[in-house]
Amino acid sequence: MAKILRVENLSKTYQNGNKKLVILDNINFDIEEGETFAIVGPSGSGKTTLLGLSAGLDRSDEGTVELCGENLSLLDEDGRAALRNSHVGFVFQNFQLIPTLTALENVAVPLELRGDSSAETEATALLEKVGLKYRMHHYPTQLSGGEQQRVALARAFCNKPRILFADEPTGNLDEATGQNVIDLLLTLNKDLGTTLVIVTHDMDLAQKTQRILKLRGGKVQELQIQE
């Protein structure tokens, strides 16, 4: 199996006045194409920072990240953005939908930006798949939190990403709604063969993945393989 993400000797620090804060310290792991992978740890352990570095949203101080066969440190900001647009999807805790666009328009936007003439057809099909066929012309403020996250899932999968990064995807949802979103996320992932990387504090969610990376204090505490 090809490695879609390879992280080697990754470190990240921030300067806070005279103090240097070590956020990540010598992180190493790799993920195979099609794998489901969770990154867990307490608040402040570096989970979201690691996701951002892995996806090329930020640069590390030391170490290398290879994403979809590209060494991110050799790409400028435009190059990293082009790689993300072609191969990467994102789901965030706060949905990040555009409030002035309908559900259908929110999902279609990434495809339209790529000049895809079938954007509306593809977006409609995905909204049907996430159970929002009859809500696609509603605006985000007219949708519940769970419905907004389902729109965000449809948008994340619309360009058929090779890898999807989900940052606390159930963090703003109640338990029942969150469980529905988890099931939907894993079903879409399986159907489309996408590699899935989830940052979460929810161990029930993490246990549904194939491997779990446990962070504490910016260091890898354990890399757990699921049965």
Score class of each variant (00 low, 15 high):
Val130Ala: 08
Glu147Phe: 14
Arg162Gly: 01
Leu196Thr: 02
Arg135Met: 09
Ile182Ser: 08
Leu188His: 13
Ala166Cys: 06
Leu173Asp: 07
Leu184Phe: 04
Glu168Trp: 12
Met136Ile: 13
Arg162Gln: 08
Thr187Phe: 09
Asn159Phe: 12
Ser144Gln: 12
His137Cys: 06
Arg135Lys: 15
Gly171Met: 09
Thr187Asp: 14
Arg155Gln: 12
Ala156Gly: 07
Gly171Cys: 13
Leu188Trp: 04
Leu184Lys: 15
Ala166Gln: 05
Leu192Pro: 03
Glu147Thr: 05
His138Val: 08
Lys129Met: 00
Gly193Ser: 11
Ile198Cys: 03
Gly145Pro: 10
Gly146Ile: 05
Glu175Asp: 11
Leu188Thr: 04
Asn180His: 12
Leu173Met: 12
Thr194Lys: 09
Gln148Ser: 03
Leu196Asp: 00
Pro161Ile: 03
Lys129Trp: 00
Met136Arg: 10
Glu147Asp: 04
Thr187Leu: 13
Ala154Gln: 04
Lys190Thr: 13
Ile163Asn: 01
Phe165His: 03
Gln148His: 08
Ala125Gln: 14
Arg162Glu: 09
Ala166Ser: 12
Leu186Ala: 12
Cys158Lys: 01
Asp191Asn: 15
Asp191Glu: 14
Arg162Met: 08
Gln148Thr: 02
Gly178Gln: 12
Leu153Pro: 02
Pro169Gly: 01
Leu186Gly: 02
Gly178Leu: 10
Thr194Trp: 00
Gln142Thr: 07
His137Ile: 07
Leu186Lys: 06
Ala152Glu: 04
Gly146Lys: 01
Pro161His: 00
Thr200Trp: 15
Thr170Val: 05
Pro169Val: 01
Asn172Val: 00
Pro161Arg: 03
Lys190Leu: 12
Ala156Ile: 00
Thr141Val: 14
Ala176Cys: 04
Gly145Asn: 08
Gly193Val: 06
Pro140Gly: 02
Leu143Cys: 06
Gln142Ile: 10
Leu127Ser: 05
Leu132Asp: 06
Leu196Met: 04
